[in-house]
Design a binder for these strands. Structure first.
Lengths: 133, 133
DNA sequence: CGTTCCGCTTACGCGAACGTCAGGCATCCT
DNA sequence: AGGATGCCTGACGTTCGCGTAAGCGGAACG
């Protein structure tokens, strides 16, 4: 079933711009579950999907532990009902946090844009006063 | 001029919910510049404005070093023209990053919302199948 | 006068997220 | 047979952002 879809660690690294160390680290932290053929690792389609989410999560400043828990939501099939409810609530919390973060980000963006506009004025007036470029 | 506007370290901590250690750390990292009266620190209005920005920056996942550079934008008065241009460009870059981050965040929010909706369905159907609450 | 608060400095500690050797199998090429 | 590779497992090192004593100096209190 998954046969041609398996990737070596190197292929993964090239595909996602990470180091082998990082992938092994994520496996140790139970974020990825490559198939172990003796010593070698074979990364599945599922691993790739998870890694993509991991990297995105990181860009939002989530910790790997946060991400690990969130990932379970995408793996609901494996979970029990009790787990599902907990995961569901966790997702709600995260969602609220993310929305709050986005709103703050919008405020900060607006403020930074103001500052930049002000800086542009400064540069313009200074350009007129000093030598031409 | 600034006389009644000065705050002790403790007042700062209470006002911003940080520890003394944090404020001293920020000073060591040249993020804050309290007036040194002998050993004691007196935090100015400027320090408070900067600290506010520092704390917000942190929520966006910026490193303290990133924040230090960004703060210079708000201190343009002190800068020279060359510095101004550099700072200006840095701000542009940050702005682009922040916008990109917000857009990604919006995507992630949408995806998470989908997952949550799906989880709701699951919980609902499971609730019907198993015992009532 | 001793004690009790601040506040200060110096310095070691810590969890997160890897980087970076060191050394060991296995395989593939010549 | 003998490298050259590729992947592996420890295990120690590193940076960031502070936490946490340990110990000193002044001021304010009873």
């Amino acid at each position: 079933m998954t046969k041609e879809e398996l990737m070596t660690i190197r292929e993964m690294c090239d595909a996602f711009q990470v180091t082998p160390r990082t992938l092994r680290f994520y496996e140790a932290k139970e974020l990825l579950f490559p198939i172990r053929e003796g010593q070698k690792r074979w990364f599945t389609r599922r691993d790739r999907a998870r890694l993509k989410l991991i990297l995105r999560g990181k860009r939002f400043g989530f910790s790997l532990e946060d991400i690990r828990q969130l990932l379970d939501l995408y793996d609901i099939g494996d979970q029990q009902a009790t787990q599902l409810r907990r995961t569901y609530e966790l997702a709600q919390k995260r969602l609220a946090e993310m929305i709050a973060q986005r709103d703050e980000l919008n405020v900060a963006i607006a403020e930074l844009q103001e500052q930049i506009a002000w800086g542009e004025q400064m540069l313009a007036s200074m350009g007129r006063k000093s030598a031409a470029e």
